[in-house]
Amino acid sequence: MDVQLIEKDNAKWALIPYDDYLSLVELAELAIDMTSDTNTKEKVAPEVVQLPEELRARLLGGENAIRIWREFRRLTLAELAKRAGVTESFVALVERGRPTCRIDKLKRIAEALGVHLEQIIVGD
C-alpha cells in the first residue's frame, strides 16, 4: 500500500490511494460484522462443510484458504474465476497472497466456493 505522510497544522495525515481506502473501509465493516452478535443467523452456513484433515492441516500451516477451498471443490482457476465473475489472473494473484483487493471480489469468490467470506479471510 502506498502511503504519503503529511504534516499540517501540528497534525499528521496519511494519504492513501482511494481503492486502498475502500478496501480498508470494507475490511473494517467486515470486522465489525464478524464480532457483532446481531445477524448471527446470517453467519451460520446452512450446511457446514468440514475440510478433510489433510486440507485443514495445510490451512493451519498458513497455506492460502482460497486455494485450499478451490482444490476441495475440484475447481480450476478458470472455473472459479468464471463463477466469481473475476479474471483468472486475479484469482491466481489472490492465491499467491496479493496484499490488497476489493472485498466485493472476495465475497464473490467465497460465494463461488460455497463458503462464508470469513472462511477465506481467516481460514476456517
Rank of each mutant, 00 (worst) to 15 (best):
G61F: 14
A57E: 12
V94F: 03
R67H: 00
E47R: 01
G97Q: 08
L15C: 04
L27V: 14
D19Q: 12
S23T: 05
E95H: 13
R56N: 12
D37Y: 05
L77W: 13
R70L: 01
L60Q: 15
V48A: 10
T87M: 10
A78L: 03
A31Y: 14
T35M: 10
R74K: 12
T38M: 11
E63A: 07
P46Q: 01
A84I: 00
E7Q: 02
R83Y: 02
D33I: 14
I6R: 09
R58Q: 14
Y18K: 09
L24E: 00
V86H: 10
S23G: 02
R70T: 10
T35K: 05
L60Y: 02
L51V: 06
Y21P: 10
L93N: 05
L22R: 14
D19I: 08
T38R: 11
L80Y: 05
R67K: 06
V86G: 05
T38V: 06
E63F: 07
E53G: 12
R58K: 15
G97L: 01
F90D: 02
E26A: 11
I32Q: 03
D20S: 08
L5K: 08
S36C: 02
A31F: 13
E54S: 14
P52G: 15
N64A: 13
A81N: 08
T38I: 07
S89A: 11
R58H: 06
E53C: 11
D33T: 15
L30N: 00
D9P: 05
E47Q: 09
E26N: 06
R83N: 09
E29W: 15
E7H: 14
T40E: 08
V44W: 11
K41Q: 04
M34N: 08
V44M: 14
R83A: 04
E71C: 13
G97D: 06
L77S: 04
R74D: 09
V91H: 01
V44A: 09
Q4D: 03
E71R: 14
R58M: 12
K43R: 03
A45P: 00
V91P: 00
G85D: 03
Q4L: 05
Q50A: 15
R56M: 02
D20K: 01
R73Q: 12
R70G: 01
A57F: 07
Q50L: 15
F90T: 06
T38P: 03
R74Q: 11
F90E: 07
S89Y: 08
I16Q: 02
E42P: 02
E26D: 15
D19W: 04
